[in-house]
Amino acid sequence: MQDASTRITLQNRTGVQRSPQDFQDMLDGMEEFQPQLAEPDPGNDGIAEVRAEYISEQEPLGTIPPPATPTGMAKSAMKMLTGNRMQVLVDKLAERLAFERTGTRLYDALIAKYETLYAGSTLAGRGDGNGADADDYDGYVSRETLVEVRNQEAEHFMLVADAIRRLGADPTAETPCADSVGVQSIGLVQTVSDPRTSLAQSLNAMLTAELADNAGWELLIQLAESLGQDEMADQFRDALATEARHLQMIRSWLTLLVMAESGNAPAIVR
């Protein structure tokens, strides 16, 4: 199936080559009305000045709520007081939690797109189509694989919620890092949930998500270890291994789609 968004037509009107005469008129107008203008100085201009004004007010997005459960309070609060800033871990855990939850919904949207465009087919690759094993993600993707990945995202959300609970913190609280990662995710949701984006365009967004997620888990493991949370770090290493497979799957799938679309690989739907 050829991707409709890779067709060539004369309909795209955005570039100046579509309107050479009008473009020349624009250039002439600028010459006439704005002949003398110093080159801009990015980083040292009006935008930077105003940004600096507001940044220097140092108003944060918000703060991190204290642990609430008695045991957690005792343990975690103590560490917070002794300078071991456990709340940094809580904040980063909440960030991962928010991202895994959104990730699950991203896969829901991706599955809907895949189902509609490629219902009943398997996208070919070099593996045997059994997505359960890391190597088998090398190209083969089926609905079952996608559902499995989606469920792993949901499991990771539960895993992190559990870790937050064990620290005595509240997994339903939105912390500053969770808030910030929510803002970042909006573009991903918008891309994948748009019925007009192709599977490859959606996978491109998923690639951004999985790259960021992998790096997020790596940092979280390092942080948990540094704060003596070895058991947590171990569990997270398993999650990272799974996320690494997700990344590999998305990356190879996207590559196959783009290569096939460009005529450099065999058709990928069977």
Binding site: R101, A109, S185, V189
Partner: peptide, 10 residues
């Protein structure tokens, strides 16, 4: 909830 995985109660 279903589009973004976010909780309205926040």
């Amino acid at each position: 909830d279903r589009l973004t995985g976010m909780d309205a109660n926040n």
